[in-house]
Design a protein around this nucleic acid. Structure first.
Lengths: 127, 127
DNA sequence: ATGACCCTTGGAGCGCGCTCCAGGTCAAGC
DNA sequence: GCTTGACCTGGAGCGCGCTCCAAGGGTCAT
């Protein structure tokens, strides 16, 4: 909570705020996943704005729903293309379909797990 | 559908039935994930029984819900321990909790994706 | 000015889960 | 008897997503 240097948060603060590790933040940046690169302090350290951190949230959202790094990269690159909104929308919609399918499959397997648990409950507790 | 050799299905048939690849089947066996190793034909080829294939289904269920190979291995090993039903049940219940948490998280992210899609729909279609 | 601490970079390393390959055996069909 | 094709083994290789490391710099408190 010691903010004064110039402005914006340090990489460790951004890491904590996003739930990612410092190494992952640098890795994502290197991979071209950042919408805007964070500014640098006079001594060359990254300074994250609220906007930067908000985008990290989007990255987390995409990663945790299973979008591969390379696909995220393509998505980000579209932000640099004027009038690519429809393309970005299409990617998001395709991803949404994918996520929904994944969820459905996992839920099906979850039901199988439940049945197996029920079976063990009968077996173990004789009930 | 050409079954005659001795009995049970070949590895490729088991692969197709389980949705896994032939290589993965051999890999799982090597890793000790099989409940019972498939019998071998006179020439040393694997012959899968319905039971073998049913267990593959369990492996798929555990894997696709995110259980790591090493944890599945521990789970399988308990089948060789008499009276380990309660332990196996505990593992399944812990896994179920984990899966449910995962589902909840993904669903939360899915809602964020939906909001982003809505945003683009307004932006792109002006509606 | 010494030490602590956080930051920088480029690049190596790693755990996971397969996936592929070489070299060989076997059974069946022509 | 020869080819074809599915199978075998041990082990190497790979794509992914980080994660760690070495070597160094800046800032600050003591």
């Amino acid at each position: 909570m010691t903010e004064a240097p110039s402005e914006g948060m340090t990489i460790s603060a951004a890491a904590e705020a996003s739930g990612l590790s410092v190494d992952t933040l640098r890795y994502y940046e290197k991979e071209g996943l950042t919408l805007h690169r964070p500014e640098r302090s006079s001594s060359g350290q990254r300074r994250y704005t609220e906007q930067n951190v908000a985008w990290l949230g989007t990255l987390v959202m995409l990663r945790r729903t299973g979008m591969p790094i390379r696909d995220i990269k393509k998505f980000v690159e579209l932000y640099r293309v004027d009038g690519s909104e429809a393309d970005r929308l299409a990617i998001l919609e395709a991803h949404r379909r994918h996520v929904i399918e994944e969820l459905a499959e996992v839920q099906t397997h979850l039901e199988a797990i439940n049945r197996k648990i029920d079976y063990y409950n009968e077996k173990v507790m004789g009930r």
